[in-house]
């Protein structure tokens, strides 16, 4: 430690960037301790990094743009592959994206009259969500621990229904209920997280509409991601950020995909 050597430029950077092994680091720190010029450079390099970080941190919190969301919606390859014969996947994806963007852009301008009409089931689903979510005692008709819940709803809906397990994402299944929906029967499963927020997954048989990718519907602060994967139409609703709801919709979709045996794929 008599006369510490001078550090090379790349050593100074490596010190700042945490690239030095402990022994090298100690050595470098000893060296700059005796050289104010080098210490100043290290300080400046650190300052440079922190001003870069400070300058762009705001981007981490920015909400996703519609275009990015439509990009995210398309993170669902199994779905596309299964229904590839409807159209070429790329054309379908582009059409969906264009429709989504146009719909969103117009929605912004004519907020009360969305151009892209949502199917009635999502309106019903959201209405059912807002009706039952505030319930303390009667939030569900049949509790999750009752074995016949799924069997019963499957029978009444007329198609195999499942309530995906979301506990690894912090959501516990409370139970479900049977609901009327324009002459059909619908099932609603309710989930709750540790902070008491609630989420519902609504499903009913879809007779007319074709399969769709995720779409978003919002009313009075409640949001719903909905999609059709015949024979069922689904809506996942909650008072969550759009991003969080989207993530959960992806999880639900993937779980349904793996849980439901798709042997009976034909409509009806």
């Amino acid at each position: 430690m008599t006369s510490p050597r001078r550090l090379s430029e790349s050593e100074l950077h490596a010190l700042v960037d945490g690239e030095l092994a402990p022994a090298e680091k100690a050595d470098a720190e000893a060296a700059i301790a005796t050289s104010p010029a080098e210490a100043a450079v290290v300080r400046e390099l650190r300052e440079l990094n922190s001003s870069i970080q400070a300058r762009y941190t705001y981007k981490l919190k920015e909400p996703l743009t519609p275009v990015l969301e439509s990009g995210l919606k398309r993170f669902r390859p199994p779905f596309r592959m299964r229904f590839a014969r409807v159209a070429t996947p790329i054309a379908a994806a582009l059409a969906l994206m264009a429709a989504g963007v146009a719909g969103y852009a117009l929605q912004g301008r004519y907020a009360t009259e969305p151009v892209q009409h949502e199917p009635p089931f999502v309106v019903t689903a959201l209405a059912a969500h807002t009706t039952y979510v505030p319930e303390v005692r009667h939030a569900v008709e049949v509790k999750a621990d009752e074995a016949h819940l799924i069997r019963w709803l499957t029978k009444r809906i007329g198609a195999e229904v499942r309530a995906p397990v979301l506990s690894d994402h912090g959501w516990k299944l409370m139970g479900g209920r049977l609901l009327p929906d324009h002459g059909l029967s619908a099932a609603q499963f309710m989930y709750e997280d540790h902070s008491g927020r609630r989420l519902t997954l609504y499903m009913r048989k879809e007779l007319g509409l074709e399969n769709t990718s995720f779409r978003f519907f919002e009313r009075d602060g409640f949001g719903s991601f909905y999609w059709i994967d015949r024979p069922l139409a689904y809506a996942l609703s909650g008072r969550l950020s759009r991003e969080e709801l989207m993530t959960l919709a992806n999880v639900v979709y993937a779980k349904l995909e793996t849980q439901i045996p798709k042997a009976d794929q034909s409509p009806k």
Partner: peptide, 9 residues
């Protein structure tokens, strides 16, 4: 499916 879901996430 789970693999894909976790990759998506």
């Amino acid at each position: 499916g789970n693999g894909l879901a976790s990759r998506q996430q």
